[in-house]
């Protein structure tokens, strides 16, 4: 089975995997995130549909309020 890397952790990849699937798999329920797949920013409105290819490097950063 293929793999992807999420914030340095390797997890199993599956066919038709989307950003949303990755968040669910990682149990990232926090809503305020910045997400990159293979270096490309994925806007919030595209999380449900954006495809995550096998071998992808996914970065998920949690954003905290305050300034």
């Amino acid at each position: 089975m293929g793999k992807i890397t999420v914030n340095g952790h390797e997890i199993d990849w599956n066919d038709n995997m989307t950003v949303r699937n990755v968040l669910d798999r990682m149990k990232y329920s926090f809503r305020m995130l910045v997400i990159k797949v293979n270096g490309t920013i994925v806007k919030r409105e595209d999380w449900e549909t954006f495809p995550v290819p096998e071998g992808a490097d996914v970065k998920v950063i949690h954003l905290m309020s305050g300034g």
């Binding site: 905290m64 309020s65 300034g67």
Partner: peptide, 8 residues
């Protein structure tokens, strides 16, 4: 910004 929503 102050709010995470805006930062995003």
């Amino acid at each position: 910004f102050d709010k995470a929503e805006s930062k995003q």
